[in-house]
Amino acid sequence: MGCFASKSLKRVPGYEEPTLLAAETAFSVSEVEALFELFNKISCSIIRDGLIHKEEFQLALFRNQKRRNLFADRVFDLFDYKRNGVIEFGEFIRGLSVFHPNASYDSKVSFAYRLYDLRNTGFIEREELKEMVLALLHESDLVLSEDLIELIVDKTFSEADSNGDGKIDLEEWKEFVSKNPSLIRNMTLPYLKDITGAFPSFVEQSEVEESE
């Protein structure tokens, strides 16, 4: 349970009307309303201000507010469109919308590209890819030799960096994903297809409020 009733969420900074959010995302109005409860719960889990702070995001993902993770940081930063260190309700809905099964293929490919462009240079560079591989190995308690890591990164670059300039641009990324569609499999959350069916408690909540 969150710290605000859905009606008082409307006084939270960054609140946006569900009808407007539904118009520009893959969600219906009732789905946006259903996501109130989840947003409310996460945004009040540590700091009861109706905004999702990074520690709250980590707590929701890992059940541990102190567990740092490079990729979770990247997702948080991309959701935090205003770059003010918190995820507001509208940002949460827009961010999650990319993961909706009905969201466009292009939006998923672009989101993944921005996710992996760690330093926001407009390219995925070799050092960034190596940093991500190292982060994944660390997270997974996997130990590979330095030579093997270099080999994995080199091999990937030789396949993806088709013009051989040492960085992967968006066109090269699109081409690489088209040959390896599993790369964006995690950009789709089947849960989001029917939130109201998957989370009937959300429906009951929003129906009660609609009838008030």
Binding site: N69, F71, A72, L129, T156, N180
Partner: peptide, 26 residues
């Protein structure tokens, strides 16, 4: 699959930090 049979992006796409489905687990 072994890390050695995957390309680097397939490897990193398995990160738990990218599994937003866990946001929906009660």
């Amino acid at each position: 699959a072994s890390p050695l049979t995957m390309n680097a992006f397939q490897l990193i796409s398995t990160s738990q930090g990218l599994n937003l489905g866990s946001l929906f687990e009660k």
